[in-house]
Simulated scan of single mutants.
Amino acid sequence: MPRLQNDLWIIYVSLLLFALAMGLYSVIMPAYIRELGATSVQLGLLGSVALAIGTLSAIPGGLWADRFERRKLMLVGWAMCIPVPLIYAFSQHWLWLIPGYFLFNFSMFSNAAMQAYIASKTDENNRSFTFTFVMSSFSMGFVFAPTLGGYLAQSVGIRGTFWFSLVLYTLSTLSLLFLSPSYPEKHESRPAGVNWRDYPKQFWVLVALFSVVWFVMNIPASFNTPYLQDIAHLDLLKIGFLGSIAAIGGAILSPFLGKAADKFGSVRVLGICLCVTAGTYIIQLYAPTVYVLALVFLIRGGFSAVMSLMTAVISGISDRRAIGMSFAMYNLATGSAATLAPYTAGWLYGQNARFPFVLTIVLALIAGVYFVAKQQKRGEEQCHSPTF
């Protein structure tokens, strides 16, 4: 395994703790929202609003990442998540959740700072591996968190579960204090800003394609839990267990996918991930038994390194002097696409519980086959940037 700098290990640990905090309630959160009176359309609308907030935070986040010390930006972003579980715990109606959703999703402005920080500490020859390995800490955190969250929800109630998340968010934030500072590179000329002409055509083509991919991946995200409750008739403990199984797959396979991407090209590996993901949803629709679903979630979790692979590609074609803003434009575009997914899925789920998954299958197969078939030049194979 390539050697990682100590700062990258600190981010790994921080993300691991963050994933534990989030994982305790993320799988059962849709059930909690419905318990607070939300319909399927309102559940999708809440998800869309949350993603919209996170998307809008990308622009200031990118500007700040190219102008201010990045560790401080990460600390502020992480700290904003600490009071979120308290807001959720005391909510009596699904509308009361909105302030918590706002804080959590606006904190995503720090993503550009984190991505730029990781890129600044990364060996170019191991870019895909580094991004997938560091981000696999999220999967590692989700190995135990969803099952534990499901157990806690049945033992002390969903509201009681949020208090454990509060402690873990606090520890995750404090761990960032051990990072060394990371300052943006000084500009001899005007840095890239929000003007689209400041970026090469290839950048925008990739951003557009990756936005479609992220829309596809987010369609079933908010409705897996309702589907497993309504169609597969699983309780929250079993649903949490499936979330842990998916995390095991991600923790084990993501680093290997990163190595494969460094060797064979990130875009081709991305296409394979999409095709495999489509296959898992086909099986879920036709064999929704707990044992089959366990295998499905294990495989799907293992091939869920889509965002890490796309981020590695963007890192490879971005100007280091404005890498924060490049990530911001990428986050803005993919976030905008993802914002449409929950509401679309909510409307489809209201028509038929299987429709969101059918749409995901069709679009994922189309995108996956396209990426796998796309030819790459020899020189571009080295930097994993496709020709479009």
Rank of each mutant, 00 (worst) to 15 (best):
Q5E: 14
I10A: 09
I11Q: 05
V13E: 09
L16R: 05
L20H: 03
S26D: 13
Y32A: 09
I33E: 00
G47S: 07
A52S: 10
I53R: 03
T55F: 04
R67Y: 12
V76R: 06
G77Q: 03
G77F: 00
W78Y: 15
W78N: 11
V84Q: 01
F90C: 13
F102V: 14
L103N: 08
F106N: 10
M108A: 14
Q115N: 14
S128E: 04
F129R: 07
Y151G: 09
A153D: 06
G157Q: 05
R159E: 12
T161D: 03
F164Q: 10
T170I: 09
S175A: 14
S180Y: 09
P184N: 08
E185V: 09
E188H: 13
E188I: 12
A192N: 10
D198A: 11
Y199P: 03
P200N: 09
A208M: 13
A208I: 11
F210E: 02
V213Y: 01
P220N: 05
F223P: 02
N224R: 14
T225G: 04
L228S: 03
L234Y: 00
I239N: 02
L242P: 01
L242A: 03
L242I: 08
G249Q: 01
L253E: 04
P255S: 10
G258D: 04
S266T: 08
L270D: 00
V276N: 05
G279C: 08
Y291F: 15
L295K: 05
L298D: 00
A305R: 01
M307R: 15
M310L: 13
V313A: 09
S326V: 04
A338R: 07
L348Y: 01
Q351R: 14
A353W: 07
F355G: 07
V362G: 10
Q376M: 14
R378M: 12
